[in-house]
Computed example of a mutant assay.
Amino acid sequence: MTHEDLKRIQSYRGYPALSLRVRTHRRMPEAQQDPTRLKNLIRHAEKVMLEREISSAVVHDYISRLDLFHRQLDWRYLDEGLCVFVAAGRLAWVMLPEPVEETVVVGETFLTRDLVRVASRTPRYHLLVLSEQTTRWFQGWGRRLSEETGHGFPMENHEDSHDPPEGFNKGVDPKSYANERSKVFMRRVAETARAHINNEQAPLFVAGVDRLQALYRETAGEDAISGSLSGNFDEHSPHELAEALSPEVERWQQARRRTVLERFQEVKGTRNGVAGLREVGEAAAMARVDTLLVESPFSVSGSYDRETGRVVTVANGGESDMAPDDVVDEIVETVMERGGNVVFYQDGRLAGASIGAILRY
């Protein structure tokens, strides 16, 4: 799942928007029951929609598409959770690397809290695999990597000969010539990568032999690289690359959490930082939130107006089959819709605040 995928799902507005969450499994024998779980949830979704007095034609359309999705899904390659989103003329689905609570929700928007939480816990990143011949570009999400084709990648080095051309100055060391050719290629790679990333905040990791990494850094700069793998990875598969890179990504993620928390502690109580549900809700509605900090189990039933920031809490409320009633979920989605970042923490890390924000202004 890319950030663009998440934004498309979050941006939908229209009734009825149907969200299904089902627990799935990676391995047998638990995975044997996954098709039955989803089938039962589809039947429950049909019942919920009819109870909401949604027209039978709409219900039939939604359930028919869900049944087709059920038949076509490759059950061999699932993860720990599956989210399915259905609306007029569309069906989207996302696999999640952690379990979800089985739920059917009908509302004016899709229920995306699990996606947002996983997107925060499971970092999205870029991986550039440097090579003298073909440099490859990958999009990463946790332990999943997929190679991108486009935006100049994969990039071929069409002048990768280590030997000087005929007529080249005989006094020049061929190794110097080869190094210059590599430098030109790495400069082209760095410039293309910079244009591709543009203003994205996803980190960039680089894999390749030390010599190529040094040449790449000369153009890209140290600040452009969040971590690296040393070695020749020309023949590595996406799965092998993801496994090798995992410790580097984890180190980056832990460092980012520490940095964000330290910054929040510095600005909390000033005009650049707020804590508390209502204060954060107001700032989110005004698009003032640069980074939202949330303790992972924090949840509040009620309603949230994304335009005014007004928060109304409901004592002892619970998740219903109607529109999502988790105020925290609504604030998280609002922040992400308006270009902010979200970072989740373990319970107690925010020193009693449960939710806080670093503000843009």
Rank of each mutant, 00 (worst) to 15 (best):
A315M: 01
E51N: 14
N157Q: 12
D325S: 02
A351G: 14
P154D: 08
Y62V: 05
R251A: 13
V48A: 05
A287E: 06
H239E: 14
D325T: 15
L293K: 09
V189S: 08
A119M: 10
V209I: 04
A323M: 11
A195D: 09
T103D: 05
G269V: 03
S246Q: 13
V332S: 09
F85T: 05
V58N: 06
L66S: 12
T2F: 11
Y216P: 08
G140C: 03
A178M: 11
E98R: 10
T270Q: 11
V104I: 11
F185P: 02
A283Q: 09
S11R: 13
H196I: 01
G352S: 01
E307N: 14
S19G: 10
H126I: 05
A119G: 11
A202H: 15
Y125M: 05
H236E: 02
F153N: 03
G309P: 06
L91V: 14
D326C: 00
V58K: 11
Y12M: 02
R360P: 15
S55H: 14
R136D: 07
P97A: 11
K183L: 00
E200C: 05
F185R: 00
L293E: 04
F298H: 06
I225T: 14
E101Q: 15
A202F: 00
P99G: 09
Q213T: 04
A244Q: 06
L277I: 04
M322W: 08
D325Y: 02
R144G: 05
T135G: 03
E80F: 10
V260W: 10
T2S: 13
D67V: 05
G81N: 07
E30R: 10
A224R: 15
R251T: 07
G309Q: 02
F110L: 11
T36D: 14
K170E: 10
V206M: 08
S146Q: 10
V116T: 12
Y77G: 05
D74V: 03
V314K: 09
P16H: 10
T109C: 01
E235K: 14
D234G: 03
A283L: 02
V206C: 08
S354W: 00
E46M: 04
S131G: 07
Q133W: 08
D34W: 11
E98V: 05
G142Q: 01
T36Y: 13
R76M: 15
H151L: 09
A284N: 09
A353H: 09
H196G: 07
L96S: 01
V59N: 06
V84R: 11
E80V: 11
A193T: 15
G348N: 13
D5T: 13
D160F: 05
Y62E: 07
R338V: 00
R124A: 04
N232E: 07
A207S: 13
W75Y: 15
D114K: 13
M186Q: 00
T192A: 01
V189N: 01
A190V: 07
V343S: 12
N198I: 00
E248P: 06
I9D: 12
A214C: 02
P238R: 10
L350C: 09
D290S: 10
D321E: 10
T36E: 15
G152W: 07
A287H: 12
A57P: 01
V48K: 00
L115I: 07
D321M: 01
A17Q: 10
E250S: 12
S176L: 12
D163Y: 14
R21P: 03
L241G: 14
V335Q: 09
G152I: 04
D173L: 01
